[in-house]
Structures are given as structure tokens and as C-alpha cells.
Amino acid sequence: MRLKRISAALIAVAVVSGAIATGQARPAKKSNRTEMAVQRQGLAFAQKHCSICHAIDTGISPKPEAPSFEAIINTPGLTAQTLNPWLQDSHNFPEIMNFEIAPEQIDALAAYMLTLKNADYRPPIQ
């Protein structure tokens, strides 16, 4: 009985090791410190410049016409590749928002916003 358990454990280790070695299974990716620092910079930027109008995390925005960051990032078709160009062009409404976001701030803001991506997101009922 004990020998069967040891054999089963060794087989499991061998299968997992082989899968990792061949690239079929990968350990979970952890955010590195640099990535987390950029995300924190993006959050700080959002708190300072965006939170007057937008909910910068989950919830309802202070201004009803301004979508929450959660709603924005979970818009169908919006991806990490399309987010930066979208943020560059998102404030082209001078009567509402009249400022530009510097490229390095866009990268940080996008990195933060991507942390709100959720495959199970459902827009709130209004």
C-alpha cells in the first residue's frame, strides 16, 4: 500500500516536471516588482487626475456620464494592445476634458487599468 502511494507520487512529479520542461505547463506568472511599481504609479495618477469624474476601481463614478475604469477595461474588444492608443485619444472632447496624458503616464495608467480586467465582469444595471 505504501509502495503504491510512493510510486504514484513519483509518477506525478515526473509528469509535472516533464510538462514544465517541455513548456506544456508553466508555473503561475508572478508580477515582478517593476511591474507592480508601474501599476502603483498608474493608480496614483488615476487618483490625482481621474477620480474626480471616474470610479478608478470598481463601483459607480462620481459623475454618472463618466464610465468607471472597471467598465472601460472590460469593454469588449479593448485589449492591452488597444488600450494605450485609446487612452492617447480618449480625451478629445475639449468641452468635457481638456488635457493630455504624457506617454509614460499612459503606460502606467494602462498597467493599473489592466489589473481591473475580469472575464466575469458584468456591467451594473442602471
Rank of each mutant, 00 (worst) to 15 (best):
M1G: 12
L3K: 11
K4A: 12
R5T: 09
A8V: 15
A9H: 13
A9V: 14
L10T: 13
L10Y: 08
A14K: 02
V16W: 09
V16D: 07
S17W: 12
G18D: 05
A19Y: 10
I20A: 06
A21D: 07
G23V: 09
Q24R: 15
Q24V: 11
A25L: 15
R26M: 09
P27S: 06
K29N: 12
K29D: 12
K30C: 05
R33N: 06
T34V: 13
A37P: 02
Q39I: 05
G42F: 03
L43W: 05
A44K: 06
A44G: 08
F45I: 00
H49G: 00
C50E: 03
S51A: 11
C53H: 01
A55N: 01
A55Y: 05
A55R: 00
D57E: 14
D57I: 03
G59N: 08
I60N: 09
S61D: 05
P62C: 02
P62K: 04
K63N: 13
A66R: 08
P67D: 01
S68T: 04
E70I: 04
E70N: 13
A71K: 06
I72A: 02
I72H: 03
I73P: 00
N74Y: 04
T75F: 04
P76C: 07
P76F: 04
G77P: 06
L78N: 04
L78F: 05
A80V: 08
L83K: 00
N84L: 08
N84Y: 02
N84M: 09
P85H: 06
W86F: 14
Q88V: 11
Q88Y: 15
Q88N: 13
S90K: 09
S90Y: 14
N92T: 15
N92P: 03
N92Y: 07
F93Q: 13
P94A: 07
E95N: 14
M97F: 15
F99R: 05
I101V: 15
A102S: 09
A102H: 12
A102G: 07
A102T: 08
P103C: 03
P103R: 08
Q105A: 10
I106L: 03
I106T: 02
D107E: 14
D107S: 15
A108S: 14
L109V: 11
L109W: 01
A110G: 07
M113P: 00
L114V: 06
K117M: 06
K117R: 15
N118A: 05
D120A: 12
D120W: 10
P123Q: 02
P124S: 08
P124D: 06
